[in-house]
Design a protein around this nucleic acid. Structure first.
Length: 574
DNA sequence: GCCGTTTTCGGCCCGACTGTTTTCAGTCG
């Protein structure tokens, strides 16, 4: 429901832009849309509890509109706007180079009502004759439509970050380039990425940008000036991705990095703080009149504005500024002591227990949990109870031979469609570590899905709920869970919620991690690795955890082995 | 539309690049 309302508010903003509405009113609708989209609970519940009214950015007008939606299923402001602007015109805004003003002109002058009719008008040569349009802009629009068709939308972090790293390396090798930084949503560790933002220090901006537009893989040059260039490159997943490069001076690197890391919303808040002090913040620095008072490094800017350094993962305008430096002590990669969700050759993994243990040790881990699939996951070569016990025996044998790293014998047991587990309790009781996950009947309604998850949490032998939402980014939606119930049950039963680090999953997501933290839940950050390479995906999960304000003290696998063992046996009263 | 130790009105972030403008509007981030 929240998503539907968020979309309507965003559409109202789009429609107001097209009809030339007040830009501050438009911003206000956009802000409300984002706030609603990120709420952990349904707006209806929050409204009833009187919590919605207290959120900054939500005013009386918004409350009225939400109440209207809840009672009538629609919002009159939205409906009225749609009588003057056809809904198809909103699609035009997705075309790069085409914004609300041009969309409005196309609609007014030529009766364009969607992308299809726009293409027809262009073919007839009508568009380039319009005031404010010309040959070039029509060309750009056509390229934009093509780009829209070719690009695969947002790119998962697991694809975007490696691409950004390769490009950063390429730019670093340009003549005259001193330093390169990856900024934007990759630096913030967002689960999907719109475009890549790179930034470099170089003496000759024009030359650097020129070289940038000629690197391998560029399919289109969007813009190329003396400090800024934008190109489109092929995306290894199919589709394409836009890459922006900005050239800055050494003195402004901190300000530029801060600015280009975003998020936009976070930056707006920072600039407001600067204005309140009578200063100005831009990508070149923090200025008191003409005097630059910070900007060489990021920390200096935050300090001058009266804040502690805010880690990039928190820069989303989700309360990180209001809390005035009272930020959580975020979990970091170095805090992780072991990976507790790993598959070996016994089910569908590609490495043996020995190989996995050695790889874990090489990463500096003190333990690793082998968690193969249970028999219902036939496609993943799930183990029967007997096969599991055989595998456990092998793990115990390997464990005895190892020094400095412990291997826990575990399972990733299926939560079946009726809520029961795929192994009986007496089998689970023989294991060190039990993750329970849903792999089937994910389309069940909210009530049944929630009950299944809760039944697993209530089982005394289950230590963690695996990839709780079941989503696969860009492929499969999250299951329809009542998160409030699941999270409070996890807290109550002292069962951990997994943050699965596979970049296709990142499940829990950042918002659910935050909700889990607020409820006092444990989380466990694991890769679900099927080979030793994938152990490296832990980094994506760490960033997601940080985005969810996760602290070391609530992350199970940040504990040393002795404490973990105590925690595990306490779970079922042992 | 939202907000307020500049509080119920009058503000609301900042700059680069492009094309069609002959001084700037539109788009984008």
């Amino acid at each position: 429901m929240n998503r539907e309302i968020a979309i309507i508010f965003d559409e109202i903003a789009d429609l107001l832009e097209i009809t030339g509405g007040d830009r501050f009113r438009i911003n206000s609708y956009r802000r409300v849309s984002r706030i609603i989209d990120e709420l952990p609970e349904s707006v209806a519940d929050l409204l009833e509890k009187g919590k919605l009214q207290k959120i900054p950015g939500i005013g009386k007008g918004t409350i009225d509109r939400i109440q209207e939606y809840l009672s009538k299923g629609k919002i009159s402001t939205h409906q009225e706007l749609l009588t003057s602007v056809p809904a198809g015109l909103l699609d035009l805004l997705r075309i790069p180079s085409l914004g609300p003003k041009k969309a409005h002109t196309l609609h007014q002058e030529l009766g364009v009502k969607d992308i299809d009719s726009l293409q027809k008008a262009i073919a007839k040569g009508k568009v380039e004759k319009l005031d404010g349009f010309g040959k070039k802009s029509v060309e750009k629009i056509l390229e934009g439509i093509e780009f829209l068709e070719r690009s695969a939308g947002r790119t998962p972090l697991g694809i975007a970050r490696p691409v950004a790293e390769i490009l950063a390396q390429t730019v670093a090798e340009f003549a005259g380039v001193k330093k390169v930084e990856i900024a934007g949503s990759v630096r913030r560790g967002k689960e999907t990425i719109g475009d890549l933002d790179l930034l470099c220090v170089a003496a000759d901006g024009f030359k650097t940008i020129k070289t940038f537009t000629k690197i391998r893989g560029v399919t289109e040059v969007v813009a190329a000036g003396k400090t800024k260039g934008s190109v489109v490159v092929a995306n290894p997943l199919g589709g394409e991705i836009q890459v922006d490069l900005r050239v800055v001076s050494k003195e402004s690197l901190g300000a530029a990095l801060q600015y280009f890391t975003g998020s936009k919303e976070h930056n707006v808040r920072l600039r407001e703080l600067a204005i309140n002090k009578g200063w100005k913040l831009n990508e070149y620095g923090l200025f008191k009149g003409d005097e630059m008072i910070a900007g060489k490094d990021e920390a200096g800017i935050y300090k001058k504005l009266g804040l502690k350094f805010i880690p990039p993962e928190l820069r989303e305008d989700r309360g990180e500024i209001e809390c005035k430096g009272n930020l959580p002590d975020l979990i970091g990669l170095d805090d992780i002591q072991g990976d507790l969700h790993v598959h070996c050759t016994a089910s569908d993994g590609r490495n043996t227990v020995e190989q996995l243990a050695a790889a874990a040790q090489k990463r500096g881990y003190k333990y690793i949990g082998i968690t193969d699939h249970s028999k219902s996951s036939a496609i993943a070569n799930g183990l029967s109870a007997d096969e599991l016990l055989e595998s456990v025996e092998n793990i115990r044998k390997v464990n005895k031979k190892l020094k400095g790293v412990a291997v826990l014998a575990g399972t990733e047991v299926d939560i079946l469609a009726d809520g029961s587990l795929d192994y009986p309790d007496k089998v689970l009781a023989k294991l060190d570590w039990v993750i329970a996950s849903i792999h089937s009947a994910q389309g069940q309604g909210r009530d049944r899905i929630t009950k299944r998850s809760i039944a697993a949490l209530e089982n005394p032998y289950v230590h963690a709920l695996g990839h709780p939402s079941g989503r696969l980014l860009g492929q499969r939606d999250a299951m329809d869970l009542d998160w409030e119930k699941v999270i409070s049950k996890a807290a109550q039963t002292n069962t951990a919620l997994e943050l699965n680090c596979s970049w296709q999953r990142l499940d829990l997501n950042d918002l659910h991690v935050r909700q889990a933290m607020e409820a006092g839940c444990w989380i466990v950050i694991c890769t679900d690795a099927h080979d030793i390479e994938q152990l490296g995906q832990i980094d994506y999960g760490i960033q997601t955890a940080r985005r969810g304000w996760a602290t070391k003290s609530r992350v199970l696998n940040a504990m040393p082995i002795t404490k973990i063992k105590k925690w595990l046996s306490a779970k079922h009263g042992g």
